[in-house]
Write a protein that binds this DNA or RNA. Structure first.
Lengths: 200, 200
DNA sequence: CGAAAATGTTACTGGTCGGTAACAGGGCTG
DNA sequence: CAGCCCTGTTACCGACCAGTAACATTTTCG
């Protein structure tokens, strides 16, 4: 553990390696990224990489875990920005996803990994499942708080639209169906809110 | 050109190689599949493979083209089954996608390839774009024939839902959001039909 | 049949990959 | 200062990969 205060002139090699790996995984794909390239991009070397991670697979898992942690932080920020307001959080979430669809870092590491880690037994797959299940629970919870007619159905609708927008961005480009994602997602929310279930 | 009547005791090596490659690409991913494995699975050998395809990339392109041709055939069948009935074709399409979501061959080769071919200059990428654009035109056309309020918007909604369902199947399993894809897609169609634009 | 074309077999190249060994500095704490 | 832990460097291994050469075999068709 390095004495790491508030200054970040240079993070620990471990951090640099993870961040470099995440960047390369996003840019060149997981199988298309070699450990040498990761160590190089991290301004480190392969030996320190293998001193911190038993294997490339373990590094992949840690990258996915960090991506999951960042999403956890995002959900907390969302709750702080719209405390108790499920509908507001849903809308803010949709807005955020739409705004970041075109990013090089489009925060779809889980999705890409799910498609690229074709090995059913890869340790990263269970992590992806766990993360996706937690994400779904969160969205369902927000839909409940938004007091819509069928919270689970709206949650699944939004999740499908979001995953679809991200992959459509990859295959059809920014001008494809993903261009109208926000419009569609907001319409779906509006539709379900219109059928808001009333007490009694 | 082999004398290939109606009997298929054994297709041409070229066909076998393409089909074997498609199967392995789906199962193990494109970068995770070696040409030796393809030749072996095709009950052929690497030399004949390279006599028919200049490179692995060219084979990839041909696989994508064949996948596109099969989809073309599917659209024609759809038109024959519901001639002139845009709404019927849309519903049949949704039904078909939902029924094949869990297949090993889930007909999402284009999507997987789009995520796996990270190289922006890969010859397969332009093919994917072309295919996706044509698919979108087709769906928009069906929506027009269905005489819904906003044909382009319904088309993009369905396309996002479908892509989302396919990738959700990969990351969240069959019990995830993709389980309710058909329900959601049909509701979307119904919603747009309910706002059917009236003449005048 | 007989020749030509297509297919199969073996072995090989050059490169990359994941992973490791051995050794050399460097910065911290005692 | 001394010792230690972390880091960096070089070289290497075995495995795999895309692609090729040379040769043997089968199939096709005039």
């Amino acid at each position: 553990m390095t004495t790491d205060f508030c200054n970040q002139p240079r993070r620990s090699p471990r951090d640099r390696i993870i961040e470099a790996a995440r960047g390369l995984f996003r840019r060149n794909g997981i199988p298309g990224t070699g450990v040498d390239a990761i160590a190089d991009a991290a301004d480190s070397n392969k030996m320190t990489l293998y001193r911190h991670f038993k294997s490339k697979d373990e590094l992949i898992v840690e990258c996915l875990q960090r991506a999951g942690s960042e999403m956890d932080g995002f959900w907390q920020e969302l709750d702080l920005a719209h405390p108790g307001d499920g509908l507001g959080q849903l809308r803010a979430w949709v807005r955020w996803v739409a705004a970041h669809l075109g990013d090089d870092n489009c925060h779809c590491e889980m999705m890409s990994a799910a498609v690229q880690l074709t090995d059913e037994d890869h340790p990263g797959r269970s992590l992806i499942r766990t993360f996706k299940d937690a994400q779904r629970e969160r969205v369902v919870d927000l839909c409940h708080k938004a007091d819509v007619a069928d919270p689970e159905l709206l949650a699944d609708t939004l999740l499908l639209l979001i995953e679809g927008a991200r992959v459509a961005q990859q295959s059809s480009g920014a001008d494809g169906p993903s261009a109208r994602f926000a419009e569609i997602a907001n319409a779906a929310i509006l539709f379900f809110v219109g059928q808001e279930r009333r007490p009694g």
